[in-house]
């Protein structure tokens, strides 16, 4: 506050008469470049929208036919189902991995680190293919003592429906990313918060649930929603396990109706835009709720 030690005289204020200074209006700097850029962008955007609406290439009539066809809605439902299940399971897995990663137990820490490293390294598509081909590697899954006798045996082919395989694949992958998001969120809560909780003698579970988690969520939610948007689009790979999501149905229908390839792609685009917009809206709402209490 007292860093500018120069007296007023030194910077020349006394050189002009005082009343003139008061009367002088400050003219803001003009930005002609901004106006030119605006004009260019508006014209280009108008051109694009006009082209989109009038170019017969897009076949908007067929777009209308396909937009809410049962086959598309079936695919959309699969997309939503797989996304929702994987988002929840992935987050739960991520919390467990993050806590393991932050624990004092070196074995848990290492296992968690290896898991995260592995699943962030392997492309989702490879995970899905390996899972799908699981039955080629292991014909049955058995439930029982590790390395010991098994009580139940499942024929993997019957156990693993396409939906289950897709959900497991996406969740395994999602958990690795969620773990990093959750870990970052927990680490973003300052040491002082944990020390204050400890000094007050707050029980450990209460510390995590009421002090650390609510603050960590502020960092976790935006990052996880981004992750979720990636997940929605990641579901378009599930056709590799013979599950047809929105994009899978679009591809199938495109081959049966080759004349409608473009409108079908536009239908998929429109639905993905709608889904991600809804998620962003939810993000905005949740973040606003979590911000309650911050500096108003």
């Amino acid at each position: 506050m007292s860093t500018s030690a120069e007296p007023a005289e030194a910077i020349g204020i006394t050189e002009s008469p005082h009343r003139d200074l008061a009367a002088q209006r400050v003219i803001p700097l003009r930005h002609p470049g901004r106006w030119i850029a605006t004009a260019v962008v508006v014209v280009l955007a108008a051109q694009f929208v006009h082209g989109l609406a009038t170019n017969p290439f897009y076949q908007w009539g067929r777009f209308g036919y396909w937009f809410a066809r049962p086959v598309i809605l079936r695919g959309l439902w699969v997309t939503l189902e797989v996304t929702a299940l994987s988002a929840v399971l992935g987050l739960l897995g991520g919390v467990v991995l993050a806590l393991a990663r932050l624990s004092h137990n070196p074995v848990l820490r290492t296992v968690s680190w290896v898991y995260i490293w592995l699943f962030r390294s392997v492309p989702l598509i490879v995970v899905l293919l390996i899972l799908f081909n699981f039955s080629a590697l292991y014909r049955t899954l058995s439930l029982g003592v590790p390395f010991g006798p098994s009580f139940f045996r499942f024929d993997e082919n019957k156990l693993a429906t396409e939906l289950v395989v897709a959900t497991i694949g996406l969740s395994l992958n999602e958990a690795a990313y969620a773990a990093e998001v959750v870990r970052g969120g927990i680490l973003s809560v300052g040491r002082g918060q944990r020390e204050a909780s400890a000094a007050l003698g707050l029980p450990r579970w209460y510390q995590f649930r009421r002090i650390v988690l609510p603050q960590a969520l502020r960092a976790i939610v935006p990052a996880y929603v981004n992750q979720l948007i990636g997940l929605i689009k990641g579901t378009s790979l599930v056709f590799y396990v013979s599950l047809l999501d929105l994009f899978g149905q679009v591809q199938t229908m495109s081959s049966t109706y080759p004349g409608d390839v473009v409108p079908l792609l536009l239908v998929a685009t429109a639905w993905y835009v709608i889904l991600t917009s809804l998620v962003s809206l939810a993000q905005y709402w949740i973040e606003r709720r979590l911000r309650a209490g911050e500096r108003g």
Binding site: G190, Q193, A196, A199, E294
Partner: peptide, 22 residues
């Protein structure tokens, strides 16, 4: 758990306040 219980008998005021912001 036992240490946390003991701390209830001892108040502590930090340099950086460490109030719970939420």
């Amino acid at each position: 758990r036992a240490i946390l219980a003991q701390r209830a008998e001892i108040g502590f005021v930090f340099q950086a306040f460490n109030l719970f912001p939420h």
